[in-house]
Write a protein that binds this DNA or RNA. Sequence first.
DNA 1: AGAACCTACTCCAAGTTGGAGTAGACACCC
DNA 2: GGGTGTCTACTCCAACTTGGAGTAGGTTCT
Lengths: 228, 228
Amino acid sequence: MSKRTTTRAPTTSQRTLLGLLSLQSWTAYELTRQMRVAVGRVWPRSEASLYTDMKRLVPAGLAEAEEEEVGDRTRTRYEVTDAGRDEATRWLRDTEVSEPRVQIEAVLRVFLADLAGADDLRRTLDDTRRQVTRQLEAVLPILEDYASGGGTFPERAHLNALFMHYCAGFFGHVLEWCDDVEAELDTWPDTAGVGMTAGAQQMIDDAIATHRRAVERYLETADEEGAS
Amino acid sequence: MSKRTTTRAPTTSQRTLLGLLSLQSWTAYELTRQMRVAVGRVWPRSEASLYTDMKRLVPAGLAEAEEEEVGDRTRTRYEVTDAGRDEATRWLRDTEVSEPRVQIEAVLRVFLADLAGADDLRRTLDDTRRQVTRQLEAVLPILEDYASGGGTFPERAHLNALFMHYCAGFFGHVLEWCDDVEAELDTWPDTAGVGMTAGAQQMIDDAIATHRRAVERYLETADEEGAS
DNA sequence: AGAACCTACTCCAAGTTGGAGTAGACACCC
DNA sequence: GGGTGTCTACTCCAACTTGGAGTAGGTTCT
């Protein structure tokens, strides 16, 4: 019955698709849209790879596909199987979460800012602010829907809220950081050869304090759990 | 002389390598290490792809490689060319920064937490705290070096500080979010079917406030720039 | 009637990953 | 002196993933 022994384990993207399919059935096109607007901010995938991922769920026995006729062409609707629902649950139950992976070219450009001038750095900060603000604007209507008791899947509002809370904090943090960089940049003659400044020293000291507190806190809670 | 017209543009990873090579010459092995410990938290790449990226810099005329003999085998030392330094500067000067790309499975698991139980969600939060704390521990000695006036490239301390400031804020935010999730989770009977709670409503309202403020602030500064 | 956008995908070259594999060098411990 | 382990210094590869282009029917607006 099961080919589990010969099939390789689904990827996280495939399991996420199974998660969405556990909520309801979707067409392939809807699924790509949902992956983008719902979870794209913490698990971005290209359209192309989503379409191929869905296809692979079927021979693995995790989902079923059926063709629907729409005028002159067809679209594919996917439905999760019991094995698929199982797979999604076992993902959350039996596997360890992978480490966060962050790719922010803006921070990289700040790190290497002395290769160009202060104006170029300012432009990067402005571009980043614009990009982040665009993202925030796109999310606002969804948030407002939820705030007024609407939104899709109201029984899942508690999970959506935690999700949005993360995203809001992340984008808020990027914007704050842009401001901090610009304020510090204003105290420099240019980007190159400045060395340690009062502001930079302050940031390092703050970072050390944050780090130490976090590490100590972690050791405490680990002790408690070990002792109990 | 230049094959720029037939060669495709370097990738961001290659340009980052050129950025590091603009500081000094490095061996291939040192470069992979540097990419990991210095910028890996905002631009993570696998060893394998870094080695192939370096190799490609040479035929493009952006770097030069020479073999050094170390006992019974060789290692490769790279040096940037004028064209390479130029390429790095034009990257910062003439191209727009790409959008942040974040991949945090922990947030995804929270979003789909109703597929499993509260214990599974708690385990994910604990794992995430452990992962993040490990990262912070690894960075602490570097931070302490800089705080005491040491550290590599002291003339670049101002840029390193901004970089570290970003990372500290990011990891701090993740830890805070874990605490928020756990506090909210404590008020639920289980993960499924809870719907909107007081805490969730608060998070949504806060997120809306943050978003609105950010969008308004952006429009204001854009106006100023447009008016001036 | 035409333009523009939405639906519903497919294709592909090129980039990228993660894990395994190879081997020399150096340290340490019994 | 022999074993174990860790660090240096990479290479190889199958599989995964991206981003952009391409195709084509459907709907909406003007």
